[in-house]
Simulated assay, not measured.
Amino acid sequence: MGNPLSPVIANFYMEKFESIALESAVLKPKIWYRYVDDTFVIWNHGLDSLHFFFLKHLNNIHPNIQFTMECEINGRLPFLDILISKTDSLNLSFSVYRKPTHTDRYLNKLSNHHPCQKIGVIKALFDRAKKVSDPTHLDEELQHLRMSLQANGYSLLEINKVFSSKPKQLREKLPHLGMVFLPYIGGVTDKIGRILERNNIKTIFIPTKKISEFLRSPKDPLDPLTASGVYKILCSCGLVYIGTTKRSFLTRRKEHMRFCRLNQPEKSAIAEHALNNLSHDILFDNMKILSRTSNFYR
């Protein structure tokens, strides 16, 4: 999770998986569409065979790949963010699907973000509505978006302006000479961004400190020895060694102990002191942390 290669690898595997599953199935679906690990299936062999044969068949191919199944209810079935419905003429109708837990909370108008990012939120929701909803559901979806966006602080004038804007014609642009990331400070960094843009340098605006950064974490504190920074280790003679590490304190302490054990004074000043003074005890268990930081150079 979080690795950009994950969806690609998952797709490779699932493509092989589905080819094995469909070729070896005694009864096959009429329609099988897949997006990564979500499938949309039309089954015309009866509900019992779907549950007791096909689903069981899929889950017997590999013990770590187990499918769950959701069947249509009252002629409606959600797939990804689309709600697919049967019409009286047995055609399919499409509208935007939201989970029951969806809160309609989007980037608030009062948030300290660049205006183009806020307009981007409205535009993305509008574009999704146009692409997903068919004509019979589009007006209903747009009305829902107007109410939701107004609840998030946007004016009806701003919303309608984006909704009624025409797509811009794509013009050939020169490749950017570079890219800069600036914290968004209204009236300051946006002006800098315009100057950079005139010089063909792309500007990405990032928010300043978030509220969560001012609050303590609700999670239990981690073992301090898993952090990095500046530490000190005492000797029984009273001398003190002060060192820095960009890995964890725990890893660095184990290294010092190993250098002492393997008689490698050239790798550690602690090992050098201990081997030159065999009657001294290095108090590794009393290691003190002077400063924790994830920035080694600081």
Results as ranks from 00 to 15, higher is better:
1 M>V: 14
2 G>H: 00
6 S>V: 01
11 N>G: 11
12 F>V: 11
13 Y>C: 06
17 F>S: 04
17 F>L: 03
17 F>G: 05
20 I>Y: 13
32 W>E: 07
37 D>K: 07
37 D>N: 05
37 D>S: 05
39 T>Q: 12
40 F>E: 13
40 F>W: 15
40 F>A: 14
40 F>N: 13
44 N>V: 12
48 D>P: 04
48 D>A: 14
52 F>Y: 12
65 I>C: 02
65 I>K: 01
68 T>D: 14
68 T>C: 07
75 G>M: 00
80 L>R: 04
80 L>H: 02
85 S>I: 00
88 D>Q: 13
89 S>Q: 12
91 N>W: 07
96 V>M: 08
98 R>E: 05
101 T>A: 09
101 T>I: 10
103 T>W: 00
104 D>G: 03
104 D>Y: 10
107 L>N: 06
110 L>E: 14
116 C>W: 12
117 Q>S: 13
118 K>E: 01
130 K>E: 08
130 K>M: 10
130 K>V: 10
135 P>H: 05
142 L>F: 01
147 M>H: 15
149 L>K: 02
153 G>F: 03
153 G>V: 09
154 Y>Q: 05
155 S>N: 08
166 K>D: 07
168 K>Q: 15
175 P>L: 06
181 F>H: 13
184 Y>K: 02
185 I>L: 15
185 I>S: 14
185 I>K: 15
186 G>S: 15
193 G>F: 00
197 E>V: 00
199 N>F: 08
200 N>D: 08
200 N>L: 08
203 T>A: 11
205 F>G: 06
206 I>A: 06
210 K>N: 05
214 F>R: 13
215 L>D: 10
215 L>E: 14
216 R>Y: 08
219 K>H: 10
220 D>A: 14
222 L>H: 04
223 D>R: 09
224 P>Y: 01
225 L>S: 10
234 L>I: 04
235 C>Q: 09
238 G>H: 11
238 G>Y: 08
239 L>V: 09
240 V>C: 10
242 I>R: 13
244 T>Y: 08
245 T>G: 04
245 T>C: 10
246 K>H: 12
247 R>K: 12
252 R>I: 00
252 R>W: 00
254 K>S: 09
260 C>D: 06
261 R>V: 06
270 I>F: 00
272 E>K: 15
274 A>Q: 13
282 I>C: 03
290 L>E: 10
291 S>T: 12
296 F>R: 05
